[in-house]
């Protein structure tokens, strides 16, 4: 990287300009481009262009000419696709389902993550490295693999957990219509708690020890230090993990898609992303594009809304 950058700089900067550049002015375009291109080109090709294409598609409608298997073409349709998204009851029930999921799962997960981070940060706990690695480990498991693993643990035919609970007279139905949302939430929590914990934990690590000493001199208990000093200081990290979790929740796909293989209680429109995928697989790319754009807007509004709401308190 550095090599390329230097070489690129040399190539565009005449030797005489060297002093001026050192003085802080002068054209550094070559350097800038060399550094920015590796990011900008993929960003353009794999982000801006697809997003632009989706936006463009979302304003198109299919028309057809002639006969039973007439020829299809697309034409400008204004907001027709968006109108359909807003009338689509399945879309709104998937949003509602995911909202319920998020309202419960995100706070539970972050609370557990915060508790674990605070515990790891106390001098009382032994074997810290072990606990830190163990808690983080599920994050290293790909989401699809985790979902497959849990789907075995949920299956009445195969699960040792279901068998054990059966032995003490319980008959849990983890894949039933009422439980399936929470079984999915459980997988997400298992996967992401360690990750969120680590973000909070590294924020805790950067708090200067002097603060704690001062607090102790003032007679603060460990509890008071955790609640009154640590949590407020790492509030920006908590906000950050919340925003990540909101985005993750709205984009939920892999876990329910895997569970769908063994439970018909996850419909093809269970989450907004699954709905978009189902619509696209039926060749209705324009409608799928409009759904994707609406999901993106909702994600944007919610995550930035949350950041604005909390920015003053969190000191962001």
């Amino acid at each position: 990287m550095t090599d390329t950058a230097t070489r690129a700089t040399r190539a565009v900067t005449p030797p005489g300009d060297r002093r001026r550049r050192l003085n802080g002015g002068g054209p550094r375009a070559g350097t800038v481009i060399a550094f920015v291109t590796p990011f900008f080109l993929p960003f353009l090709l794999f982000y801006l262009v697809p997003v632009g294409y989706a936006l463009w598609q979302s304003f198109r409608v299919v028309r057809r000419s002639g006969g039973q298997y007439g020829t299809s073409y697309t034409t400008f349709g204004g907001f027709e696709q968006y109108g359909q998204v807003f009338q689509n009851t399945e879309f709104w029930s998937s949003i509602g389902r995911i909202a319920l999921f998020g309202i419960v799962q995100v706070p539970v997960m972050l609370f557990v993550a915060l508790t674990m981070a605070l515990l790891l940060d106390t001098p009382l706990l032994k074997l810290k490295a072990f606990f830190r690695i163990t808690a983080f480990m599920p994050y290293a498991v790909p989401g699809v693999i985790a979902a497959i693993m849990w789907s075995y643990l949920y299956s009445p035919q195969l699960s040792p957990i279901v068998d054990l609970l059966g032995d003490i007279g319980l008959k849990p139905d983890f894949l039933g219509p009422g439980a399936i949302l929470w079984s999915t939430a459980n997988i997400s929590t298992w996967l992401w708690t360690g990750y969120n914990m680590l973000i909070m934990f590294s924020a805790l690590q950067s708090i200067p020890q002097e603060l704690y000493e001062a607090a102790k001199l003032d007679g603060a208990s460990n509890w008071a230090i955790a609640w009154r000093i640590k949590v407020p200081i790492i509030a920006p990290s908590i906000v950050l993990t919340t925003v990540f979790s909101i985005i993750g929740t709205l984009q939920l796909y892999a876990e329910p898609a895997v569970l769908r293989q063994i439970s018909s209680n996850i419909s093809s429109t269970f989450t907004p992303n699954m709905l978009a995928y189902a619509v696209a697989s039926g060749n209705n790319y324009q409608q799928a594009a409009a759904i994707s754009v609406v999901i993106a807007v909702i994600t944007f509004v919610l995550s930035f809304g949350f950041m604005r709401l909390t920015s003053k308190k969190a000191g962001l």
């Binding site: 219509p177 093809s268 039926g282």
Partner: peptide, 20 residues
């Protein structure tokens, strides 16, 4: 001509029926 979409809708509704 839209068999796949119809199949998905049928499945979702059959799953509801199976769940009562």
């Amino acid at each position: 001509p839209t068999q796949k979409t119809v199949n998905l809708a049928l499945q979702d509704a059959m799953a509801k029926a199976a769940a009562g």
